[in-house]
Amino acid sequence: MSLLRVDGLSKKFGGLNAVEDLSFDIQPGAVYSIIGPNGAGKTTLLNLLSGVYQPSAGHISFGEHDLTGRPPHEYASHGIARTFQNLQVFFNMSALENVMVGRYLHERSGLVSALMRSRRLARAEDACREEAAELMRYVGLHDYLSAAADAMPYGALKRLEIARALATEPKLMLLDEPAAGLNPTEALELDDLIGRLTGRGVTVVLVEHNMRLVMGVSDHILVLDYGRKLAEGPAAAVRNDPKVIEAYLGSAVAHDGSFESGIASAVAVAVEMRR
């Protein structure tokens, strides 16, 4: 049975169809990448899959639950976590507290019990603190255990978001451009981290422009273009799909040169244009 099922999903912003009639299934345990040119609707799709946007049409079901139209915190409580392309960190807290907040769903004690059973709570808080520290080490943030979030460098904050997302004990993790803004060494370390995530039993949905990363870790790739599905399938099949190459580079280039170098230059152009 598929973990996530998307059926006829559409999102309109005024007259623009950011995502249009999209259907796909995500199987548990896989790394499922979503690629496409800038403006293809990738981030819109992630926002739909995490409840940040409500779809204009279509359904999203997760396991046996229909989550269509539910608020974001319910997506989280069913086991969908995400990170952001532009960081969404709680800068008014320490790094460790950021991850601890991620434990909220699992360690929640009501206001009354917080006031009545303070000793038990103190123990629970220590355990929570330790778990959060463990997750920070897991993503490679050993050096930032006592850092304030607003004193951390960009690459570390990206990992911090992953640790916070992991703290919610997700079944499905949506990573929105985790490699953007990282240097090549940091980007290489992401391969390893994503591999370990699936090793933990977390299914990963990856939105990414770094083709080396996408081709290296993905089991399955969905290609979007103007909000529609352009191609979908195993990584090896998608990388040789002429339609995909055309969407990235235009048809003239589609017939010569290797796809990967083509994609790399297309990405370089795209990055250039964003500046």
Partner: peptide, 28 residues
């Protein structure tokens, strides 16, 4: 309450970033 309990931290988190708070499962 705000420094040591998770509910208090959830309220602080919400004050700083509602979106991220929702996405870790906090009902804002």
């Amino acid at each position: 309450f705000f420094g040591r309990t998770l509910l208090g931290k959830a309220m602080l988190a919400t004050s700083h970033n509602r979106l991220a708070a929702q996405l870790v499962g906090i009902n804002v």
